[in-house]
Simulated scan of single mutants.
Amino acid sequence: MKIKIAVPSKGRISEPSINILEKAGLGLKDRESRKLISKTFNKDIDVLFARASDIPEFVQDGIADIGITGIDLIEENEADVIQLLDLNFGKTNLVLAAPEDSKIRSVEDIKSEMTVATEFPNLTKKYLENNNLNLKIVKLSGSTEAAPFIGVSDLITDLTSTGTTLKMNHLEIVDTLLESSIVLVANRESLNDKKQLIESVSTSIKGVLEAARKKLLMMNVKTQYLDSVKEVMPSMGGLTISDVLSDEQTVAAQAVIDEDEVFELVNKLRNAGAKDILVVPIERII
């Protein structure tokens, strides 16, 4: 029994999506050629390249068993899929924005005769309905931020991660419609029929995410300093100790720690009596 994983064929989330699959042990056999369907080094798993906006429906309809896509696209397409994991990248917000020199500073300033331009007409319509606003919606396929300045609309809804592009285009955020990130999703039937294989993929990717901000710290410690080292050593599951055969008075110690603890902790460990300290990257934590 085989499964297909739908991955964006291009755009800002394409490479991170492929990289996370490769770190999870699902490297592409023909990555450079970028065929529509690429085999992985697991004979039961193929990768289907598709437009990011098509992936929610591909997974919903069973064309792909699982897929990597944005919450914004899932919600815009009203796709019936199961979210398995938040992949911790591609975080962005769908916002309502108006020109800086307009008098629109809040939702209360919006008039019903106004027009809003967007690549997300469904999400925009829901937002307007929830706020009792009856605006004309103009669907665009790009360059949304230019719409108010060429007479197409009074407002826009658009994706932003930092707000910098909006500011550069003299637009000001009025409200946030949706917070989005990139997620791993599954087809409902596939999750039942191919549960074991899909869970294997999900578990491997989760392991990559868990390891992303972790390091393995390894060191040698004289037994007389071991208690001092233990006191300063945080870890996921306690300090692991093993004998050093060449020196009965020394043990080898190791622990998994958060990456942002490394700088300060190494100096504390040295002062506590640790030596030969190694900081090692971790590929996966299962």
Rank of each mutant, 00 (worst) to 15 (best):
K4I: 01
I5S: 12
A6S: 09
A6P: 11
A6G: 11
G11D: 09
R12V: 07
E15W: 00
P16A: 00
S17Y: 04
I18S: 01
N19D: 15
A24T: 02
G27L: 01
I37K: 04
F41K: 08
N42K: 05
D44T: 01
I45V: 15
V47H: 03
L48S: 04
R51N: 10
A52S: 11
A52M: 10
A52C: 03
S53N: 15
F58D: 09
D61Q: 12
G62Q: 12
D65R: 07
I68N: 01
L73R: 12
I74G: 05
E75A: 02
A79G: 12
A79E: 13
D80E: 13
N88T: 01
N88R: 10
G90P: 11
G90Y: 01
T92M: 08
T92Y: 05
N93P: 08
L96N: 06
P99F: 01
K103L: 11
K103I: 02
R105T: 09
V107E: 11
D109Y: 09
I110G: 02
M114D: 08
T118R: 06
L123F: 08
Y127K: 02
N132L: 04
V138E: 14
A147I: 00
P148Y: 01
D154Q: 09
I156F: 04
D158G: 03
S161D: 13
S161Y: 06
S161R: 04
K167Q: 10
N169Y: 00
H170T: 00
L171F: 04
E172S: 13
I173T: 12
V174R: 03
E179H: 14
S180H: 05
S181E: 02
N187Q: 11
E189S: 08
L191T: 09
K195G: 06
Q196G: 12
Q196T: 13
I198G: 10
I198T: 11
S202H: 07
S204Q: 04
K206P: 11
G207L: 00
L209D: 08
R213I: 00
L216Y: 02
M218W: 01
Q224P: 14
S228L: 09
V229A: 08
E231D: 14
P234E: 06
P234D: 08
P234C: 02
M236I: 09
M236R: 10
L239D: 06
I241D: 12
S242D: 15
V244E: 15
D247T: 09
D247C: 03
T250N: 11
A255K: 01
I257P: 15
D260L: 06
F263P: 10
L265H: 07
N267S: 15
A272W: 15
K275H: 14
V280H: 04
V280G: 03
V280Q: 05
